[in-house]
Write a protein that binds this DNA or RNA. Structure first.
Length: 262
DNA sequence: ATGGCCAATATGATTGGA
């Protein structure tokens, strides 16, 4: 079972890159973020033609998440509990059944939170509190669970080429990192950090200022595994080369292989 | 050389991203 996450920064602009990467990496399940389109306008056909079931939860202009899966998607839920007034399309969960066993997966697009002295940051923190609450409940099921997404959190100094430049940023503030550690402390495993000790790899390079050419990246896209998933982790990686393609997203795919057969 | 981008929108300037 290969599961991946990718912030595509507009699904309409990324159809060619996404289909090319799917053909190359051949993931079974993909969590997508920043699809930036309403559900009726989502280009499903190119992905269905590659054998994927498609579940979308989008909105006009901003945000938007989706799941692609070679297995049927069941119990699809497109709301993170805890705030009925939250209208942002940032979360979608589904259950997947395979011959090797069941898996629960969520596509997560955590708020950016900048600038930190505004209600955008308090929204980020309260969203993280809701995610902690959700994860705590799901972990009680003691099942394989993968939270894949753009968490907009740089976890440690190993996860930025120039950490000092990010000190005052909502992605790296102590309060942000503390809240992210609360997720770890529930018992979730960071798949990339389990597979490599760092520094790096990075998953995002800004379009501006030659960040890609100078490898001034950060690691903010993560796959967090429940103990029942982490016990089955075989390998994990970041497809950095995709950032060098024509018309790239500013994020690259992150993937993990799980041996689901107990 | 200390600045450089990209996507969506009833668009030609503004907003959001990170």
């Amino acid at each position: 079972m290969r599961i991946a996450t990718w912030n595509v920064n507009s699904i309409k602009q990324r159809v060619d890159n996404l289909t090319a990467w799917l053909s190359e990496r051949r993931p079974d399940i993909v969590c997508l973020q920043e699809t930036k389109c309403v559900d009726d306008a989502f280009p499903r056909e190119p992905f269905e033609a590659l054998g994927y079931n498609v579940a979308v939860h989008g909105q006009k202009t901003f945000n938007g998440v989706a799941l692609l899966s070679k297995f049927p998607l069941e119990d699809v839920t497109a709301r993170l509990p805890g705030d009925e007034a939250d209208s942002h399309a940032r979360f979608m969960e589904a259950a997947v059944s395979t011959a090797q066993g069941a898996l629960r997966v969520a596509s997560v697009y955590l708020p950016n939170g900048n600038p930190p002295d505004t209600d955008k940051y308090s929204y980020k923190i309260s969203w993280m509190d809701r995610l902690v609450h959700y994860a705590r409940e799901r972990l009680q099921l003691e099942e394989p669970l993968v939270l894949g997404g753009d968490f907009n959190v740089i976890p440690t100094e190993l996860d930025a080429r120039h950490p000092d430049r990010w000190r005052a940023d909502a992605l790296f503030l102590p309060r942000t990192r503390q809240k992210f550690r609360a997720l770890y402390h529930l018992g979730l495993t960071d798949a990339i950090r389990a597979a490599s000790e760092g520094p790096g790899p990075y998953t995002f390079w800004d379009y501006q200022a030659g960040a890609w050419q100078k490898n001034e990246g950060i690691r903010i896209d993560h796959l967090l595994l429940s103990p029942q998933a982490a016990d089955r982790l075989i390998a994990a990686g970041v497809d950095k080369h995709v950032r060098g393609w024509e018309k790239p997203s500013d994020h690259v795919p992150v993937w993990a292989d799980l041996e689901l057969s107990a």
